[in-house]
Amino acid sequence: MADVPYVFRDAALTEPFDPVDGGIGAWSKQGDTAVGVFYVGATDAGFKLQATSNPGVDPIALSIVDSSPGSGVEATAIRLAVSEAGLAAATPGAALNIGDTVLGGAVNAIEVWFDWANSIGGGEYTEISIDIVPLDEVPV
């Protein structure tokens, strides 16, 4: 598989996210909450990211997608926020807007945190994904 554009595993934007290496992981025991994070950004500080649909106007939206609704982990068990501290106030299952523009450079990358309220039995679950709208990378 190929890298997911503008998604990185690390804050320095040196590890592009490739699903072949496994999803963004999190685990906990049943009844606990697990957290994970990835980063959205452009490595070149001379560029910026905007939503293709209406660059600079439409928000860059990330949504929670459940490939098997009704079984396993539900989308409503996931919350998204741009900081770990922000998760507590996030709405379960809600999409996350990270602004209409993300400036390039690691320092401007957006942290995307998720938490999972684990109320399910032991196992490994892969039906949840975070989808990102098409993006344009344009000069600043």
């Binding site: 997911v4 554009p5 503008y6 998604v7 996210f17 699903p19 496994g22 999803g23 963004i24 992981g25 999190a26 685990w27 906990s28 025991k29 049943q30 697990a34 994970g36 990835f38 293709t52 997608v65 982990v73 996931i78 998720f114 999972w116 684990n118 399910i120 039995g121 032991g122 196992g123 490994e124 679950y125 892969t126 949840i128 994904s129 975070i130 989808d131 990102i132 709208v133 098409p134 993006l135 344009d136 990378e137 344009v138």
Partner: peptide, 18 residues
């Protein structure tokens, strides 16, 4: 301008059983 299609970041959620 470089455009990218919609991206999807799968989550790998593991639940340990006490």
């Amino acid at each position: 301008i470089e455009s990218s299609p919609a991206g999807s970041v799968p989550l790998l959620l593991q639940s340990a059983d006490p």
